[in-house]
Design a protein around this nucleic acid. Structure first.
Lengths: 81, 81
DNA sequence: CTATATTTGTGCGTATGTATG
DNA sequence: ACATACATACGCACAAATATA
């Protein structure tokens, strides 16, 4: 179970972003992330919301995305700390 | 090693186009290019992606394609004047 | 002209990310 | 936050053009 709480203190996209970030930090998520539509179903949100979350992670330098390919976790070493 | 970088800043078809253009400029590629499907295997992309790349090179005037025959590098002299 | 091999060209479906309403 | 349309990318199969025997 990984659904967000619509009444939670944060917006849905923030909750999803934090959840994915946690997976990256623990090493649970490496390489290519599951596709956005799959994550949307997992978190019980719309695909666009997941996109918003990934944009946040991209802004933090945690992931990079490529059309037609997927979203990839940036190596911790490449993040400089 | 000639495969495209899935984390690269450019699309796969752009990376392939630039790689082939570099070979043409260095003279490594002359006459007829390897067939598209061979290039696809070499760069680790789909044939359709190579087609897209060759379309870009054709647009730059670097190559010409003849159906059933192959894709040929345009002579530098023909491009420079 | 027929047959075969090689190479390019096209269509369909599917996965994934991007942009807009 | 949601739905829709569009671009990039992959895989497969078939058609068309060319070269060779």
């Amino acid at each position: 179970m990984s659904e967000v709480d619509p009444l939670g203190p944060d917006f849905a996209y923030v909750q999803v972003a934090n959840a994915i970030a946690a997976r990256i930090n623990t090493g649970e998520a490496r390489g290519r992330l599951p596709d956005g539509r799959h994550l949307a179903g997992e978190f019980g949100v719309a695909y666009q919301t997941v996109r918003h979350s990934l944009q946040v992670l991209h802004d933090r330098g945690l992931v990079v995305t490529r059309p037609g390919s997927g979203t990839f976790v940036v190596h911790p070493a490449s993040r400089g700390g």
